[in-house]
Amino acid sequence: MTESSSAQSGTAVVDDASRHMVRVENLHRSYGTGAAAVHALRGVSFEIPRGELVALKGRSGSGKTTLLNLVGGLDTPDQGRITVDGTDLSGLGENGLLELRRDRIGFIFQSFGLIPILSAAENVGVPMRLRKADPREREERVALLLALVGLADHAAQRPGELSGGQQQRVAIARALANRPKLLIADEPTGQLDAETGLAVMELLRAVVRGENVTALVATHDPQLLGLADRVLELADGEIVEA
């Protein structure tokens, strides 16, 4: 390769990293061995540009949660490559993956995942405590995020004192605590009624725009899919629509 072609190649890599928050190439993941093996993902490839809200749809067992876990660095593929924010996950050890999840990725779960004995404000502040943020910075960020999700007046309430929709809003605020570049949400409206679910999805879309983050959201609700910039469909471990 000539010096000029090498430079051009390097520029292409930088440009691609600047355009895409997530890049998935030929991803395979199986569970079990031999005839009993379950092939959760079969050669999945896609890209997510920065600043997009991408919805991931598919029937139960199609591989959605497996894919989210891989992109979020919670699991490793059998084959293939995942790049998040310009970082190849295969080059990271356990400590590197831990830092990636702590500093650059925010997770939102269907079950909310809040700590029952902590107030809404304390739940939101947990990620910042883990990275030992300055207490004043933490308090200011918590107050800002609770206001962002419409819960400024509920800071002192515990999860059991909040509705399902309010609990999910706290979970969204917590996911944003460390200013992540990527939000990963697994059926975030699955336990909510249709009206509340729509409000939460609209909040996620507003967060993507206002906080300048990228989001990959698994959902099966057709009404919610309409709020996404793009929809990816998984069927039997393969992308069938992109």
Rank of each mutant, 00 (worst) to 15 (best):
E3I: 09
S6M: 14
S6E: 14
A7I: 12
G10K: 15
A12I: 10
D15Y: 01
D16Y: 03
R19G: 02
H28R: 09
S30K: 10
Y31W: 14
Y31K: 05
T33F: 09
A35C: 02
A37M: 04
V38D: 12
L41G: 12
R42V: 09
G43F: 10
R50M: 06
G51S: 13
L53I: 06
A55S: 12
A55Q: 09
K57R: 15
R59W: 08
S62E: 12
T65F: 10
T66D: 11
N69H: 13
L70F: 08
D78Y: 04
I82N: 03
D85C: 00
L89F: 04
L89C: 02
L100V: 02
F109T: 03
Q110L: 01
Q110K: 01
Q110T: 02
S111F: 13
G113F: 01
G113P: 00
A120F: 04
A121E: 09
N123P: 10
V124R: 02
M128W: 03
R131F: 00
P135I: 00
R138G: 00
E140Q: 14
V142M: 03
L145P: 02
L146D: 04
L148H: 03
A152S: 10
A152E: 11
A155S: 13
A155L: 13
A155N: 06
A155G: 09
A156I: 03
E161V: 03
L162K: 14
V170K: 12
V170F: 11
V170Q: 12
L176W: 11
L176C: 11
P180A: 08
K181N: 14
L183C: 07
E187I: 06
P188H: 07
Q191H: 11
D193K: 09
E195P: 00
T196A: 06
G197W: 07
L198T: 08
L203E: 05
V208K: 04
G210S: 14
G210Y: 00
T214R: 06
L216N: 04
V217T: 10
V217C: 04
V217Q: 05
H220K: 07
A228D: 12
R230V: 02
V231Q: 05
A235R: 15
D236L: 04
G237L: 04
A242M: 07
